[in-house]
Design a protein around this nucleic acid. Structure first.
Lengths: 198, 198
DNA sequence: TAAACTTTATGATTATAGTCATAACATTAT
DNA sequence: ATAATGTTATGACTATAATCATAAAGTTTA
């Protein structure tokens, strides 16, 4: 999102995290800006029963965990590598400087926060309800229409495990499995070699 | 949030909306920046059963509905006046111009989006679960610690009806009433003249 | 190549949040 | 001052998502 040349110009460091390694934890103060060079990162919480909730998943070139850099709060979630990942790290002060000096980058950061708020708004009204089929379909449609921007029937392959879908939507994995089977019966999704298509 | 003098300098118009009047609807394209001069605005969705979900409530000097101005999407929720309200309205193009010309205002907008993302992150991990007591307490604690910044026991009076709490947290009003009663028994909240204190 | 681990899947049971009905109390409108 | 409306509250009942147990299939590791 922030061009690599610019990150390098501002002396961002590169660090490699192993699969499952923690980048930062819920409750810590934010000190750095983070951007994925390659790999996949998730931000998550665990409830009292150690049930995981995934706040978001971040891929190559995407940043994560910026909101606390702009307001005086601690991280509301952990950040963990889903696979071995390499991350750009820029200290908070340098990040501010970079934004002050690069108006167009600031607009990109604002756009990124706007996208995440849009996603949260869509998901929030669904995950508060008692209807797993709605939750799941709304999430799939968000991926299809807003993220991958695809048309046609069953053109989008859902690249999440049932377990990941359950963690994102706050459902039990058994509920996700049964509901997807049900949605297949209703013609809403297709399952092929255990993969789901919307 | 944006100083009124600056809004006026950019020719923002003032419009008054009656209680329950709609400012914009879910699915519309965003054309304007909105900021409350006085009154209270809510953004909400209705599900298939006409059950309301409140995405956020906005008070004097706060803006609402900006994310779609930065990304190419339609409004994910409606905006409605909770009471008679007067709103500044600035067309999208003028809003961009204002941000381009006023870096410090852009930082304030970014901060505002960051605050909302923080709130959504906190609420999301709770409202997806099956525990109304957690949902309610987490929401009260967010109000106490992050919004009103109060300390001590039962110092915060919760200025929301049970119905509003149920709409914000995606619960049935009966569930909210019973759960708050239960939390009183556990010493987590105090109820005085039907008002809740945390 | 086989063991270990992860993912997907199914069946049976249950706790609970929702649903429906009803009513007391408070506030607002006439 | 009274009727209408909104808010809070309670009781009884039910559908369902969670829970628990178990296992088949696929992937990863040694």
């Amino acid at each position: 999102m922030i061009p690599e040349t610019l990150l390098i110009e501002y002396n961002a460091t590169l660090k490699t995290f192993d699969k499952d390694e923690i980048i930062f934890s819920e409750g810590e103060f934010a000190r750095n800006y983070y951007q994925v060079k390659h790999g996949i990162i998730k931000m998550n919480n665990f409830n009292d029963d150690a049930k995981e909730f995934i706040q978001g998943i971040f891929y190559k070139r995407q940043s994560f965990g910026e909101p606390p850099l702009f307001i005086d709060v601690k991280y509301p979630a952990n950040a963990t590598a889903i696979e071995k990942s390499t991350i750009y790290i820029l200290p908070k002060e340098k990040f501010y400087e970079l934004l002050q000096n690069n108006k167009e980058v600031h607009f990109k950061i604002t756009e990124s926060l706007a996208k995440r708020l849009y996603y949260k708004a869509i998901i929030a009204s669904e995950i508060s309800s008692q209807e797993p089929s709605h939750r799941i379909l709304r999430f799939f449609d968000y991926l299809k229409n807003d993220v991958f921007k695809q048309e046609g029937k069953f053109t989008l392959k859902i690249n999440y495990t049932r377990q990941q879908i359950s963690d994102i939507l706050g459902l039990r994995v058994e509920t996700v499995i049964r509901t997807i089977k049900q949605l297949e019966k209703q013609g809403e999704v297709k399952i092929e070699n255990r993969k789901v298509y919307r």
